[in-house]
Amino acid sequence: SIKEIEKEEIIKVLKEVNFNKKLASEILGIPLRTLYKRLKEYGI
């Protein structure tokens, strides 16, 4: 599903940037606030 793909992509990017959420949100092209929402939604 799209949610699974998105979750995997978020985890992959977070690992690449050593869990720097600000940098991860910039790489993913989403606002930091949205990233936090996704992390909560996906239980990351």
Results as ranks from 00 to 15, higher is better:
residue 40 K to G: 06
residue 17 V to K: 03
residue 1 S to R: 04
residue 6 E to Y: 09
residue 14 L to T: 01
residue 22 K to S: 08
residue 42 Y to W: 14
residue 21 K to S: 08
residue 11 I to S: 04
residue 21 K to A: 14
residue 4 E to T: 09
residue 29 G to N: 09
residue 16 E to S: 15
residue 26 E to H: 11
residue 9 E to F: 15
residue 5 I to E: 11
residue 10 I to R: 00
residue 29 G to V: 03
residue 37 K to V: 08
residue 3 K to W: 12
residue 26 E to M: 13
residue 24 A to E: 00
residue 29 G to Y: 02
residue 9 E to P: 02
residue 16 E to Y: 12
residue 13 V to W: 03
residue 36 Y to W: 09
residue 7 K to L: 12
residue 5 I to W: 14
residue 17 V to N: 08
residue 16 E to D: 11
residue 17 V to A: 10
residue 6 E to D: 11
residue 39 L to Y: 02
residue 36 Y to H: 09
residue 31 P to T: 15
residue 3 K to P: 10
residue 6 E to R: 10
residue 43 G to R: 06
residue 43 G to C: 09
residue 31 P to W: 04
residue 3 K to T: 12
residue 3 K to D: 12
residue 5 I to R: 14
residue 26 E to R: 13
residue 19 F to W: 15
residue 20 N to T: 02
residue 22 K to I: 12
residue 11 I to F: 10
residue 20 N to M: 04
residue 26 E to W: 10
residue 17 V to P: 00
residue 17 V to W: 04
residue 34 T to D: 14
residue 38 R to A: 12
residue 33 R to V: 10
residue 39 L to F: 03
residue 41 E to K: 08
residue 13 V to C: 05
residue 43 G to F: 08
residue 10 I to V: 07
residue 24 A to R: 00
residue 44 I to N: 04
residue 35 L to F: 08
residue 15 K to Q: 11
residue 7 K to P: 06
residue 5 I to F: 13
residue 21 K to M: 15
residue 19 F to C: 07
residue 33 R to H: 12
residue 26 E to G: 07
residue 5 I to V: 12
residue 44 I to F: 10
residue 22 K to G: 05
residue 21 K to T: 14
residue 20 N to Q: 04
residue 29 G to H: 06
residue 27 I to K: 11
residue 38 R to L: 15
residue 12 K to S: 09
residue 6 E to C: 08
residue 20 N to R: 05
residue 26 E to V: 14
residue 15 K to A: 09
residue 11 I to H: 04
residue 9 E to C: 08
residue 28 L to R: 01
residue 30 I to V: 06
residue 7 K to R: 13
residue 14 L to A: 01
residue 38 R to S: 05
residue 14 L to K: 00
residue 21 K to N: 08
residue 44 I to L: 12
residue 38 R to T: 08
residue 1 S to N: 14
residue 38 R to N: 05
residue 30 I to L: 08
residue 5 I to M: 15
residue 27 I to R: 13
residue 6 E to T: 14
residue 39 L to Q: 01
residue 27 I to V: 11
residue 37 K to W: 09
residue 10 I to F: 09
residue 44 I to A: 05
residue 40 K to A: 12
residue 20 N to C: 07
residue 2 I to Q: 14
residue 31 P to S: 15
residue 28 L to G: 00
residue 13 V to D: 00
residue 21 K to P: 12
residue 31 P to G: 08
residue 22 K to T: 08
residue 11 I to W: 09
residue 31 P to V: 03
residue 3 K to E: 11
residue 42 Y to R: 02
residue 16 E to L: 15
residue 24 A to L: 03
residue 14 L to C: 03
residue 1 S to H: 13
residue 25 S to T: 04
residue 29 G to Q: 09
residue 2 I to L: 14
residue 19 F to R: 03
residue 23 L to W: 07
residue 19 F to Y: 14
residue 23 L to I: 09
residue 10 I to T: 09
residue 5 I to P: 12
residue 20 N to E: 03
residue 40 K to W: 13
residue 27 I to E: 03
residue 42 Y to S: 03
residue 38 R to D: 02
residue 22 K to A: 10
residue 40 K to D: 07
